[in-house]
Simulated assay, not measured.
Amino acid sequence: MSNVFEFVAESRGQSGKNAARRVRRTGSVPAVIYGGHAEPQMLVLSHNEVIKHLAHEAVYSHVLDIKVDGKTEKAILKGVQRHPAKFQILHMDFLRVNMSELVKVHVPLHFINEQASVGGKKGGIVTHGMIDVEVSCLPTDLPDYIEVDLSGLDVGESVHLSDIKLPARVEIVALAQGSEHDHPVASMMASKASKDDAAA
């Protein structure tokens, strides 16, 4: 975790939809930080700063510094509500973390060697069943992303959750629930062109 993301916030005393609307009218983002061993706290963040942070993929799988009225807390981003039509962040949820306790976070998947794969060289097309995966680990072990190597994938084959090589001390939450949750992450399908070649 080389990057450090700091969200500078101010506390807001009021909660509810009307209070949130007032915050948005000032060009700010209403938010809440909860969990840990403290009461939920309503926050106000700068919309421009939020947009800058959210442009980085890693912010969704990082332990963040939330600086509220001069005091810094560790947290992860648990939810972002966006306007359906406008380029606007409507609300954010942060979950406090204890650096010695396990956290569950969705981490992006990065697929590599698609074109160089066995099936890719035959003209196959990769379809992705997932773009991220929920993992469980200590905050200090939280990866920015997880690589999925497709080099050995042939046409008609799939890569499942259990096939992913994980960083040390990181577990996939779904796999802990049983083998029936070992879902496909990516599959190699024959393209129309490759089918036509085979028929010829």
Results as ranks from 00 to 15, higher is better:
169 R>G: 03
199 A>K: 15
197 D>E: 14
59 V>F: 03
94 F>M: 09
150 L>C: 07
80 V>A: 03
150 L>V: 00
78 K>A: 09
6 E>I: 13
2 S>A: 12
142 L>R: 03
17 K>N: 13
34 Y>D: 11
137 C>D: 01
141 D>H: 06
139 P>A: 06
196 D>Q: 15
92 M>W: 00
167 P>W: 00
16 G>T: 10
54 L>S: 05
49 E>Y: 10
59 V>Y: 03
168 A>E: 06
110 H>E: 08
97 V>S: 09
40 P>I: 10
100 S>F: 10
83 H>I: 00
31 A>F: 07
88 Q>V: 01
80 V>C: 02
156 G>D: 04
127 T>W: 05
106 H>W: 14
160 H>F: 12
82 R>Y: 02
197 D>A: 15
88 Q>C: 00
7 F>P: 09
187 S>W: 08
154 D>G: 11
106 H>I: 10
36 G>T: 11
166 L>F: 01
21 R>A: 06
191 S>L: 01
41 Q>A: 13
41 Q>T: 13
109 L>V: 04
154 D>P: 05
107 V>R: 04
33 I>A: 10
12 R>Q: 08
56 H>D: 07
53 H>I: 13
102 L>Y: 13
191 S>Q: 00
87 F>V: 12
99 M>Q: 12
164 I>L: 04
26 T>M: 14
165 K>Q: 02
199 A>G: 06
10 E>R: 15
144 D>T: 05
99 M>V: 12
29 V>F: 00
106 H>M: 15
94 F>G: 08
140 T>Q: 14
104 K>N: 13
131 I>R: 15
72 T>W: 11
158 S>M: 06
144 D>K: 02
155 V>Q: 06
191 S>W: 03
51 I>D: 07
185 V>D: 03
72 T>E: 11
23 V>R: 04
184 P>I: 07
197 D>H: 14
169 R>D: 09
4 V>Q: 13
175 L>S: 04
99 M>Y: 12
150 L>F: 02
6 E>R: 15
19 A>K: 08
68 V>K: 12
50 V>G: 07
126 V>R: 02
193 A>K: 14
139 P>Q: 08
196 D>K: 15
196 D>S: 13
9 A>I: 13
101 E>S: 13
38 A>V: 11
70 G>V: 10
182 D>K: 07
162 S>A: 08
105 V>K: 03
103 V>Y: 04
97 V>G: 05
160 H>V: 09
19 A>G: 06
29 V>N: 07
191 S>H: 00
194 S>A: 14
165 K>L: 01
145 Y>D: 06
93 D>F: 05
13 G>P: 11
87 F>T: 10
